[in-house]
Amino acid sequence: MIKARSVSDKIFDCFVYFIVALGCLSVLLPLIYILANSLSSPKDVALGNVLFWPKNFTLDIYQYVLENDSIGISYLWSIIYTVLGTLISISLIFLSAYPLSRRDLKGRGVFMFIYVFTMYVNGGLIPTFIVVQALGLYNTIWGVILPGCMGIWNIIVVRTYMSTAIPWDLQEAAMLDGADAFRIFIRIILPLCRPIFAIQILFMAVGYWNMWFKPLIYLVGEDRHPLQLILRKMLIQNDMDNIMAGGVGSSTGAEELLYMSEALKYATIVVATLPILLVYPFLQKFFEKGMVVGSLKG
C-alpha cells in the first residue's frame, strides 16, 4: 500500500508533532531555566535577568557549592543512604521474588498472600513509627533505611518477569543436572534478569536519593540529614543562613552574599538532580518491562 500522503494526513502529522513538542517544551523549559541560572553570575540571577541562556557565564557558584560544608556533608549522607538502601532492598526483592516465582514451591499461595496482603492493608505512619522506636532503630541510619525498603509491587513485577521471561524448562534441566536452588538463582536467574535488575536498581536508588520524610522523622538533629532536607530548607523554608554560614568564602561582602543565596538555590538543584538525569536515559529501553501492570490473578 504505497500511496501519496494526503493533505489530511499531513495535517494529522503536524498536530501530532505539535502536541508532542508542547509536552516536551513544558518539561524542558523549567529545567533549562534552572541550568541557565546556575551557570550565570549571581548578580544577574538575583536581578532576574536570566531566562534560558546563561548571562555572564561563570562556574563560581558551583565552586561555592563544592566548598560548602553543610551541602558537602549532606551529599555524603545521601550517597550512604542510597548505596546501603539500594543494596538491601534489591537483595530483599530478588531473594523473595525467586522462590515466589517457582511453581514447585510448596505453599506458594500462602506466601503470596502474606506478601500481597500488606499491599492492601498496612499499619500506616504512626504504628510504623512506634515499631521503629520499639526496635531501637529511632535515631539510627537503619530507621531511615529499613522501613519501606521492600516494595511488594516490585517483588510482584520481578516475580512475574522471572516466571514468564525465563523458560521453566531451563530451570528443570539445571535441576536434573543436580543444581540446587541457590545455584540456579545465581547462575541462571540473575544473569537472565539483567534488564529488570537494572531497572529495579534505578528505581530503588532514585527512591533513596529523593527521600526526605523518613530522615526528617527518624533522625534527631540535622547532622545526618541528606541533601533533600537541605534543599527543603533552602528552597521551601527559604532559610539560607545556616547554609551560607557553612561556606568558605569569608571575604565576600553582604550584598554579594545576598546575590549568592539566590544563585546557590539553582546550583544545588542541579547538583542534586543531574546525577539521576544523566543515568536514566541509558535504561530507558527497559522501562516498559519494569512496569508490568496486570491483575493479580494467578
Binding site: T118, V121, N122, G123, G124, I126, P127, T128, I130, V131, L146, P147, G148, M150
Partner: peptide
C-alpha cells in the same frame, strides 16, 4: 515492618 505495624493499628 509490615505485620507489627498492622497489629499496632
Amino acid at each position: 515492618f509490615e505485620y507489627l505495624p498492622i497489629f499496632g493499628i
